[in-house]
Design a protein around this nucleic acid. Structure first.
Lengths: 144, 144
DNA sequence: TCTGTCGTAACAATTAATGTTGCGACTGCG
DNA sequence: CGCAGTCGCAACATTAATTGTTACGACAGA
């Protein structure tokens, strides 16, 4: 379905900053995170910018600039991240309006919307159940 | 997230065929369905082709050709349709391998995969709960 | 003033879905 | 037998979203 790794990369960045701060550092740079995620620093800055708008991270400019967590990893859930970085709904409707002269064309969108709303609701509950601290714990639990 | 309406269009097509057959017709043509969904017949044929591979519909060729249901709408769930028409997973990993020399780079994919697997599981349960007969009922329940 | 990093715009590259055209294959009918 | 209507499928165009890249000004501390 989606060639969309935004949630994955955002979680990666947050886990990285969290671990780095646990090791006693003040801020992490987009360059460092980009190296770990094997991508471009601008991509990281863009994503972190969205997380900052959601109040999850803060950035500092000037010399010794970089990114830090605005809250504990324990208090951040994947739902917070999801809402910050994912724009649209999971499933889309027709890209052009179906034939309103047809019974099915008229009724299909409300019918499917009901289903999709329920699913989106469940998805949110699942994401809200996992904190970024959980993610970092699982990351560190992987044997090297 | 996804600009992907495959599930919606597939459900539309199945509901349309189901209703048309209830009205006493043998088969529906991709042209008719495309008109209702306001898209191109080839798009419908492609989708229905995937549904046929999954055993949900059958097609007839020659004169009086067209599509018919291979099973009752009651016995078809949105999960059947989803599995037939959605290729990939909901959330993607990094498009390039993260830095394996970094703890986070090494552990993030297994960690996120665990979460994503659970979500995919829940999504399937939700989809399996809705039959295409439910969808058609809801379609017809929409006031005109 | 110099240095390192963010902030952001602009644009290219990539990928997936969707739309379109064309044509051969099939099959019932006259 | 030939015709008509529709599927099957390949090839290509279009659209849209994400991701990657380059460039450069803004900022703040040394």
């Amino acid at each position: 379905m989606s060639a969309n790794s935004r949630l994955t990369i955002a979680a990666h960045a947050l886990a990285w900053i969290g671990l780095y701060q646990r090791q006693g550092h003040e801020v992490a740079t987009s360059e460092q995170i980009a190296t770990s995620a094997n991508t471009n620093p601008v991509v990281i800055r863009r994503l972190l910018g969205e997380l900052r708008r959601a109040g999850l991270v803060e950035s500092r400019r000037g010399v010794g600039a970089g990114w830090s967590l605005a809250r504990d990893l324990e208090s951040m859930t994947l739902l917070d991240v999801y809402e910050a970085v994912e724009p649209g709904p999971l499933f889309a409707m027709h890209r052009t309006t179906p034939d309103q002269a047809c019974v099915v064309g008229r009724g299909i969108q409300p019918a499917m919307q009901g289903v999709y709303d329920g699913i989106e609701q469940t998805l949110r509950q699942e994401l809200a159940r996992v904190t970024l601290a959980d993610v970092l714990r699982d990351v560190l639990a992987v044997p090297r």
